[in-house]
Every structure is written in structure tokens, then in C-alpha cells.
Amino acid sequence: MLRFWRATINSWRGLKFAARSEQAIREELVALVIAIPAAWLIGVTPARRVELIAVVAMVLMVELLNTAIEKLSDRLTTEHDLQIGRVKDMGSAAVGVALAIAGAFWLFALVERMGLI
């Protein structure tokens, strides 16, 4: 139980640091807070509501991983490095894919709510 508690504390500290240092993390936290009530309005089933919240949480998760990659890369060298730039670009691409998936889920849910499918 102590290990679980320590892991929870470390996770909370990581989230707080990321939120303080990264605008994208703050924006996605706001999106998650907005998504919770919005999912209840848009989702037609309990499962759909959970899916809508989960995909926004997924975007936050991918952004946290991308931020970790960027912070670690910046610790390795402050000079421009082509390979590190590519790694950062791949992390950014992962965030873009997560955003596209989330957008598709929300669009589908809106169309479903309007009764078009």
C-alpha cells in the first residue's frame, strides 16, 4: 500500500509540474474539465459518455508523455540536434494523432446526438 501511495504522490507532483510549466497541459486540463459535463449532454449512452471523457484524458496522457520527451531532450543538449528535433517532432505528431482521434469521437457523438445516424 505504501508503494501505491508513493506512486500516487509522484504522479500528482508530475502533473502539477507539467501544468505549471506547459501551456498545452493547462489547456488540455481545461478541456478535460469542460469535457466531463459536455459528455453528459452529448453522449447518448453511458458508454458513449465515458468514451468522450476517456479520449480527452488520452490526449492529456499523450501530451504529458510528449512533454516528458521534450524536457528530457532539452536536458541532453541545448544545442540544435537534428535527431533530437526529429524525436520532438514525433512526440508532437503523437499529440496530433491523439487530437484527431478525440475530434473524431466527439464529432461522431454529436452526429449521433442529432439523430443523423
Rank of each mutant, 00 (worst) to 15 (best):
K71P: 00
A31S: 09
A94F: 13
R20K: 08
R6A: 12
F17M: 08
A47E: 12
G14V: 07
T8W: 14
S11I: 12
S73P: 01
L65P: 00
T8V: 10
V95Q: 01
R13F: 12
M58Q: 05
A102M: 13
L99G: 00
L15C: 00
I25G: 01
N10I: 06
L65V: 06
D81P: 04
A35T: 07
S73L: 03
L64Q: 02
L64T: 03
M90W: 15
F105I: 01
P46N: 05
T8Y: 12
I34D: 14
K71V: 09
A109P: 11
L41T: 02
R86P: 01
L99T: 01
I84T: 10
F105D: 01
M61V: 09
S73R: 04
L72Y: 15
V95L: 01
E51N: 06
F108I: 04
T8M: 12
R86E: 14
L64D: 00
A18T: 00
R26Q: 13
V97N: 03
I117S: 03
A93W: 15
R86V: 10
F4E: 06
I25H: 00
S92D: 14
R3C: 03
P37M: 03
W40R: 07
I42T: 10
A24M: 03
I53L: 05
S11Q: 13
F105Y: 15
D89V: 04
G85W: 07
E51P: 01
L29Y: 11
M1R: 06
D74L: 07
R3Q: 10
V56Q: 02
E63C: 05
A38K: 02
R86N: 11
A38E: 09
F17W: 12
L82T: 09
S21Y: 14
R113C: 02
A39Y: 03
T77A: 08
A7L: 08
A31P: 06
R75Y: 15
A94M: 14
L72K: 11
V33M: 12
H80I: 07
A38W: 09
K16M: 13
A19W: 15
V30G: 03
R48D: 10
L76P: 01
A35S: 07
I84E: 02
R3L: 11
V59A: 01
V111A: 14
I84G: 03
L29N: 08
E28Q: 01
I36Y: 12
V111M: 06
G85R: 13
K88S: 08
V33K: 11
L82W: 15
R3Y: 12
F17N: 04
V59D: 01
D89E: 15
A54G: 03
R3T: 10
W106V: 10
N66A: 05
V56T: 13
